[in-house]
């Protein structure tokens, strides 16, 4: 199971890199740091039926770091929410696949538009509260960036989720140690991040966000009763391609043809 997930993650990385090259879509490194998390969620953890994306009992997922949408679009296609061929329209004028998850049911599987940071967790909290009111047992998962944790609204939501004892809410922080223009621990004092979540009343664990077995294990672990869960996933920006790893230039850089080929070779994905 873990080996199959790793193969999927490698293929997703190759597709994301190729799409960035073909369409000029940025935030490549931010996508690559959360690919393993998204793969584990969509292929092993989330309760969902891609043929019925509106099923009331489905688990909700929100990509609060909306700029990693290029990764999400690929995952949703691979999971069967829409044909992979639909991604051929990526980046076209008038299309729906751009740089952020769109609103309004345009892309099946996307619960809400994100892109402005600090919005996904409050929305996810609202969805978790709605599930509790309706007596449904579905869970809500939200992926946040570490840079995103600069936003005050994240911590407003953190306090309310703890006060409301929302054990149906789980966040995963893609802690890749960078934000757009600097180290995330230096721009604002983020560390110790897991302790911050604990101090805010959450049950927090730290994992290697690229160790697929650890990611699956953390996501599948039953939540602590009466507490929301924070999984602080230590990741590497640009993970999977040696010349992109931990190099923040790839926040905005677009790979050339040769770089796409080199990346594919490293990922072990045939062109």
């Amino acid at each position: 199971m873990i080996a199959a997930l790793k193969d999927r993650a490698a293929l997703l990385r190759a597709r994301i890199i190729e799409t960035s090259h073909r369409t000029g879509t940025p935030h490549l490194a931010s996508c690559l740091s959360c690919v393993d998390i998204l793969t584990a969620l969509y292929f092993e953890v989330l309760r969902l039926d891609p043929a019925r994306p509106d099923l009331p009992g489905r688990d909700r997922f929100l990509l609060s770091k909306g700029h990693a949408a290029p990764a999400l679009f690929q995952v949703l296609a691979m999971r069967g929410f829409y044909p992979e061929s639909r991604l051929d329209t990526y980046g076209e004028d008038g299309g729906v696949f751009g740089e952020h998850p769109p609103a309004g049911g345009q892309v099946p599987g996307i619960e809400a538009a994100t892109g402005s940071l600090g919005h996904g967790l409050p929305i996810g909290l609202g969805m978790a509260l709605a599930a509790r009111l309706a007596g449904r047992d579905n869970r809500v998962f939200v992926v946040l960036g570490d840079g995103e944790c600069n936003e005050g609204s994240v911590w407003e939501a953190a306090m309310m989720a703890a006060a409301q004892r929302m054990d149906n809410l789980t966040i995963i922080v893609d802690y890749n140690k960078w934000q757009a223009t600097g180290r995330s621990d230096e721009v604002l004092a983020l560390a110790p991040l897991a302790d911050k979540w604990r101090a805010f009343g959450w049950s927090a664990v730290e994992i290697d966000g690229h160790d697929m077995a650890a990611v699956v294990d953390a996501l599948k672990r039953p939540p602590e009763a009466g507490r929301p869960t924070a999984i602080v996933a230590h990741t590497i920006k640009g993970r999977g391609v040696s010349f992109m790893e931990d190099d923040n230039n790839w926040h905005y850089r677009i790979p050339g043809k040769d770089e796409v080929l080199a990346a594919r070779r490293e990922l072990g994905v045939a062109p």
Partner: peptide
């Protein structure tokens, strides 16, 4: 800010 986001999440749930 959180309150408005929470409200939107609830509204999206019907």
């Amino acid at each position: 800010a959180n309150m408005m986001g929470v409200a939107a999440g609830m509204a999206l749930e019907g």
